[in-house]
Nucleic acid binder design. Sequence first.
DNA 1: ACCCCGATCGTA
DNA 2: ACGATCGGGGTT
Length: 176
Amino acid sequence: MKLLSRSFFQQPTLTVARELIGARLHFQNHSGIITETEAYIGQDDPACHAARGLTPRTKVMFGPPGFSYVYLIYGMYHCLNIVTETENFPAAVLIRGVMCDNDHIHLNGPGKLCKAWGITKKNNNTDICLSNHFFVTTGTPSVNVLTTPRIGIKVGIKHLWRFVMSKNDINKLLDI
DNA sequence: ACCCCGATCGTA
DNA sequence: ACGATCGGGGTT
């Protein structure tokens, strides 16, 4: 089980989003296998929060890769992202699904994950390459991954930038 | 100061 | 299909 380093998150966002499927996310006393991600890529991606430039909220996305980007959505749910690519190129991967290690509960949805694990804006801008309570390691290798359009957006739908672990591989995780 | 709207989710 | 709920960001 190897720690995913800054050089991993510095790769193209689509590569990171794809490779994070099957990796293991650790947060405080929680851990689980990532089953679903989405890529948000730079100022030319209309669905990316940073599309309209640098603001107090999107500042993290303009920073170095490997930092958490946590924001509040719809006034009640938090979403966890990990910043990707080089500094000053605003991009991130949204973590949308995790299979919890302990109880095998499948947290299928970014709001459900943050609610279940207690991830809030307090955890924004954390360096997950250096933290010892918030990091990502290698997990289940060579899983099958499907791509679809991203969920819940009205623009940028043409891109297949959502990555989902195959139903078959998710079911295997339930058996472990 | 004001207004619109959103990378969601549970309920109907 | 729809409402809850509130902060971010643009506009006046």
